[in-house]
Design a protein around this nucleic acid. Sequence first.
DNA 1: CCTACCGATCGGTAGG
DNA 2: CCTACCGATCGGTAGG
Lengths: 201, 201
Amino acid sequence: MVGRPRDERARNVILRRAADIASQDGLEGLSIGRLATDLGLSKSGLFGFFGSKEELQLATIRAAMGVYVNEVVQPALTVPPGLGRVRRLCENWLSYSQRRVFPGGCFFFAVTAEFDARPGRVRDAIAAAGLDWAAFVARAIDDARQLGELADDTDADQLAFELIAFLEAANVTSLLHDDANAYERARTAIRKRLDTAMTGP
Amino acid sequence: MVGRPRDERARNVILRRAADIASQDGLEGLSIGRLATDLGLSKSGLFGFFGSKEELQLATIRAAMGVYVNEVVQPALTVPPGLGRVRRLCENWLSYSQRRVFPGGCFFFAVTAEFDARPGRVRDAIAAAGLDWAAFVARAIDDARQLGELADDTDADQLAFELIAFLEAANVTSLLHDDANAYERARTAIRKRLDTAMTGP
DNA sequence: CCTACCGATCGGTAGG
DNA sequence: CCTACCGATCGGTAGG
């Protein structure tokens, strides 16, 4: 099912716009007609790329995952494993949210809140992405622990939960109140929490 | 503009159902026709109660605020000011989320993520409720500080930000992954964070 | 990839 | 508070 290069480029343009819209108005607020008009395509032409609204939603999630990996995950892998990589992951995330890579803030925050109470393939795809991300953060934390940079008894899953909580709280607070201070709040919280984790509970 | 008692009772029933729907499908997913069918009313009859969809959305937010105050805020006021009240507020919140007082988890989490990137009166009402809540938590924290139960230099707004981050992370994690452990994660995080705040940074 | 169309549903209104 | 209706928009399809 791989199209010609030209089709793939078109798909990428479509899906990047779709992710922008969904970050603001949700994956249900993303309508095929509106997306087609935005891009200067016919509705049925755009529809033909995906075959159903659900497939468009799933493809949009995959495209947003690509952006997320490029913005948050990959640049952290240039830092060697350890506490530095954990800090870099958090900073990359805050920067990705603050720079409004997606105009509605973190794409995954928006669509998670939208689908967390609606069963289906879209929710399942969002949940899988969330588990992957939490496991990746926990792995980076556990690497730091094994390297002796965090206390031996550090619970990586617990610490990942707390750091991710700070990141998401900064995202939603800055969006809702146009308050960039929320990012400094999160940075302060993360710094202090990692300091505590260095010496143990 | 106060209706007869009978009208007020009907309004309460309508708005409680509206809040349930919105917690799962959002305030845009809440359609007048669906709400009317659910309640056995005609669409135009229900429409007449509110006059516009936006007014229905605003009334639904006010109704959800009443539930929230009853479930989370009021029972914490039976505890004297201090650290005990702060802990009680957090526990009330986790219980309110975990018991699914609204079937889609915390009503305000759902609608905040939905409207945080859309200007308008609905967003403004949600933002005002969020500020009130954060200020209330910060006030409870500062009471505890003034009573000597938290370190003198405790930053109440910062600590409120962190505690609320844990609460909301538990809500969304439990919903997305059907994982009740998230509430224990939040309880652990809150307990440790308050312990740290007792002795100072 | 387009035009033209389908039935369903949306918010909202007329008229009683 | 109801029935009946309005134009707009939804996801999706027919036909080319």
